[in-house]
Simulated assay, not measured.
Amino acid sequence: MAALIATITLQIVSRVLFSAVGWTEEVSRFLLIWITFLGATLAFQRGRHIAVTFVVEALPRRLQRLARIAALLVALSFMIALVVIGYQYMHVQSFQRSASLRLSMTYIYAVIPLAAALMSWYALVDLIEALVAPPDDIDSGSVNAEEPPA
């Protein structure tokens, strides 16, 4: 995030005081892509993605547990598919180079399978915890997730 702020600040200052630095727009775009995917991974790990829980919360405890396990299985399946598809897409785009930096786009697209693999790991951990936890210890988010200090 600090690199993104520094790059955008350099872009603004260079446009106002000098001639614009050409690579700043591209770098800031690539940094925003990486921040988005890694932020989504962090939100997944902390159980902060948008969820409609009122239906599940209305169920008995046993069915809540089954619904949580089913949701984690669906999420895990999706993330594994995203790892495979993201890896394939990364290799398909490997010949492409960025416009100003001439950087291989493999490095930019690598965040897709990386973030999906991390989310798969978190989903697997949550699934194992949901399977071994006693039925009375149901939680709607990650069991060990802590909030960052305010």
Rank of each mutant, 00 (worst) to 15 (best):
A2G: 10
A3N: 14
L4H: 08
I8R: 05
T9H: 13
T9P: 09
L10R: 12
R15E: 11
A20Y: 08
G22A: 09
G22Y: 10
T24G: 14
T24Q: 13
R29D: 02
F30C: 10
I33P: 05
I33A: 14
W34T: 04
I35W: 08
T36C: 14
T36F: 15
F37M: 13
G39Q: 03
A43Y: 15
G47T: 08
I50E: 07
T53C: 02
L59I: 07
R61D: 12
Q64S: 08
L66D: 02
A70Q: 00
A71S: 14
A71E: 03
L72E: 06
L73G: 04
L73A: 07
A75H: 02
S77Q: 02
F78I: 12
V83N: 03
V84H: 13
V84A: 07
Y87A: 12
H91M: 06
H91A: 02
H91T: 02
Q93N: 01
Q93W: 00
S94F: 03
R97V: 14
S98Q: 00
S100F: 00
R102M: 02
S104Y: 06
S104H: 07
M105D: 07
M105I: 14
T106S: 03
Y107Q: 10
I112H: 05
L114I: 15
L114D: 10
A117H: 03
M119G: 04
M119S: 03
Y122M: 11
D126M: 05
L131R: 00
V132F: 04
A133M: 01
P134V: 12
P135I: 03
D136S: 12
S140A: 11
G141C: 06
S142L: 00
S142F: 02
S142I: 00
V143Q: 14
V143T: 10
E146W: 07
